[in-house]
Design a protein around this nucleic acid. Sequence first.
DNA 1: TTGAAAGCGGTACCAA
DNA 2: TTGGTACCGCTTTCAA
Lengths: 360, 360
Amino acid sequence: MEIQEERVVATIYDVAQAARVSVKTVSRVLNEEAAVRPSTRERVLQSMQQLNYTPSTAARTMRTQKTGLIGVLTTAITSAPTTPDAAGLPSVNLLKGIQSVMDRSGMLMMVADTGESPERLEQLARTFREHRVEGILYVADYHQSVSPPASLFELPTVLVNCFDEHQRLPAVVPDDVAGGYRAAEAALSRGHRRIGFLTLPETMVATQLRNQGFLEAHEAWEVQVDPGLVLSVGKFLDPPQEEARALRHALEQLLNLREPPTAICCGNDKMAMSLYMQLQQWGVSIPEQLSVVGFDDYTLITELLNPRLTTVALPYVEMGQRAASRLIQEIQGVAEDRSDRIVEALAGPVIWRHSVKDLR
Amino acid sequence: MEIQEERVVATIYDVAQAARVSVKTVSRVLNEEAAVRPSTRERVLQSMQQLNYTPSTAARTMRTQKTGLIGVLTTAITSAPTTPDAAGLPSVNLLKGIQSVMDRSGMLMMVADTGESPERLEQLARTFREHRVEGILYVADYHQSVSPPASLFELPTVLVNCFDEHQRLPAVVPDDVAGGYRAAEAALSRGHRRIGFLTLPETMVATQLRNQGFLEAHEAWEVQVDPGLVLSVGKFLDPPQEEARALRHALEQLLNLREPPTAICCGNDKMAMSLYMQLQQWGVSIPEQLSVVGFDDYTLITELLNPRLTTVALPYVEMGQRAASRLIQEIQGVAEDRSDRIVEALAGPVIWRHSVKDLR
DNA sequence: TTGAAAGCGGTACCAA
DNA sequence: TTGGTACCGCTTTCAA
């Protein structure tokens, strides 16, 4: 016959009894409230130590109606356990930024993955509400338009790396127009005048915005854009073999032009890497014969490629920070001109490495 | 003058009142308990709907002393907001595995990052306890030995991707001996007999274990290991320039041997990628002139390299699943032979691609 | 099949 | 400076 501990964790009553004070006094010590006589305080603290007392957030929450909890809904962290892919990298950095702000504000994150299904999203939002999270961050792993479920409107919510198609929820997204602009400018500013652009699928919102930026940069530099120079590498996402083939075709087209480009901007670093591999096979050297600009700054690629890749970074950490700050402000009721800038776009810097030749 | 809502969320009492029943009946409906007359049940459900009622986990927790919460402590997700690196990739996959199991068990994760400082770890463990998590998963981002703080012993805890130096806590780690074995065997089985091994720093536990596996494989295949063939690429971690130089030296040494290797196993995929870059510069072709085997299966690298890289995968998703399962079993008091297998090692498969030439 | 009342572990109000 | 007591929202025990 075994003897079970009646109560495993000590309560504030146990502490009060041990310290021969009332619970209220213990509570005062806990919250560093008012003035408690130092000797009393010391006694209480000791009792807490001895009993290994840990206050219960649940009880505290009931009284105060505050949890210090933020719910983070993400699609990338834990989705599709079977697909080993590099997906998730953006989310990690987004989370870095979020976490750093939460820390400073004494908030704790509950992280849950929505996976693929929308009903799962509903369910998770519900779970969050049951836990009385004070706000929700909805994190996408690539810049996209979303239609948030009704439940997200019932709590302070900020969208990260995505936006409400009706613009009713505050959002923080990458500034892809600026991104495209900077990518083009990276080449333009080094004297390149014929710049190829291998874009991601047109269905992605980033693609169109970057195209726009690409054009604007040319305008600003008073350089004419040859439409034959910007090519959509169609389904440059899956599977890898198809990607490689699509890229090779696009590349052939570009390099067989009467006036081939001296530089090529890529839709992302992965594409740039494939480009490296292809060019190597053809024996064209980077950056001597052709300059390359990437997008994303996946350091796994950009730092390891030879020559190291000049690329436009996406400011994921900052985006996470900004989104978290906005959420906390909203929770605390700090009115921050909610009128304008519902969706806020953050631009990332060009990371200069060695894949762009200076033609000047 | 603004009017504030007195209470924003409905309680069980509000529902009871609206449905003209007692709170107990509402509770019964909530928990699908006993038999409630269908008509009553329907009425209660409707009232819940109308009031947008969401039960409070805090209140429920107080009564039942159960939270359904698991605390996940990690070093990689959100640490060092300033270092953009590929770090975090293992953790993401580990989390994938963990999440998939938590889902099935109806548990929710609280994720917190310990960053660098040990006292932060203490503090987070404390926060978890305040939230009455029912168990803790301590996740490292590379295979290492740790000395867990006392607080981790007070709750069911499983170490993931690391182990307690005194083996007092259950742990799930990669089987690096098997990994080294399989890497070598990938080459041996294709007829290679002189295989180079470019290892990670010897201070990493993975390095020694993989070395051991490398040797065991040679024994099994009755192939003599030339000690001159296994080289530690010293500080092959940072900064990139130094890495590249260290690698070049090691490579020169290897290829200038009287009998150079026909295949090279790399400590990780990053190193393999650097190897590709270097070999390309020297004009030696893969796999015709030299075969390469990687480690980690970072698909960002392995799928994009040309030829695609044959590598030994680390079973992060499975590790996460296994760790989560063990934790839940421990929480539920399912005695699973705690005597043996305190630390459990999981081996990952060789992912066959095209960087190893068949010599047979 | 349904309800009344106690209690979980804290905090808040008011009194001493 | 300290204490008594009601109460937060739910579940449990027991009774009707």
